[in-house]
């Protein structure tokens, strides 16, 4: 598992440039441009299960959901940050990308760290030490459990019809 570490205020324009927002609609193709204006090396070396660690206000700026989608389809398993921009955080919940708000872990993790995320118990192990993170609010847990907002609603509407 590779760890990509970035700073504060990473905005959605450098995660997924605006010039692609209406010309690319396939999630796999979106992934080919993930973090293009932040770290051009990212897409060349990212592998399934890698994680992104960042500072405060990750995903600030535009509401474009492709910022979450392109990271998810690049294979990244989770983004751990000191804090997230609110719309980006919602987009992560809705698209099934794990976004963990944990300043202590974001500070401690280096590119060489060994990191394990325990989703059930809302904690991260960094180099052997467990750190708790705030759970996703219970009231929106149904979206996560349903595999994201669209799959959750698809199931709900198909049940309604049958």
């Amino acid at each position: 598992m590779r760890i990509f570490k970035y700073g504060d205020d990473v905005n959605t324009d450098v995660i997924f440039p605006g010039k692609y927002t209406y010309t690319i609609s396939d999630p796999e193709e979106m992934a080919q441009h993930a973090l293009e204006d932040l770290d051009p090396e990212f897409v060349k070396i990212v592998e399934p299960g890698d994680i992104i660690v960042a500072g405060k206000n990750f995903g600030c700026g535009s509401s474009r959901e492709q910022a979450a989608t392109c990271i998810k389809y690049s294979g990244v398993a989770a983004v751990i940050a000191k804090s997230f921009s609110r719309i980006f955080f919602r987009n992560c919940i809705n698209s099934g990308l794990l976004a963990v708000e944990c300043p202590a872990a974001a500070d401690r993790i280096t590119k060489e760290s060994s990191v394990t995320i325990d989703r059930e118990r809302n904690r991260i192990q960094v180099d052997g030490e467990w750190i708790d993170f705030p759970p996703i609010p219970e009231a929106v847990r149904y979206i996560i459990d349903g595999g994201g907002l669209i799959p959750y609603l698809r199931k709900k509407f198909s049940e309604k019809k049958s």
């Binding site: 509401s63 979450a68 719309i87 919602r90 698209s95 669209i150 609603l153």
Partner: peptide
């Protein structure tokens, strides 16, 4: 307030959204 695309689609379908 701003929201994402999936959430807009969800409102088209259900009329509702959750807010903190």
């Amino acid at each position: 307030a701003g929201i994402g695309r999936s959430e807009a689609a969800a409102i088209w379908a259900t009329g509702e959204i959750w807010l903190k």
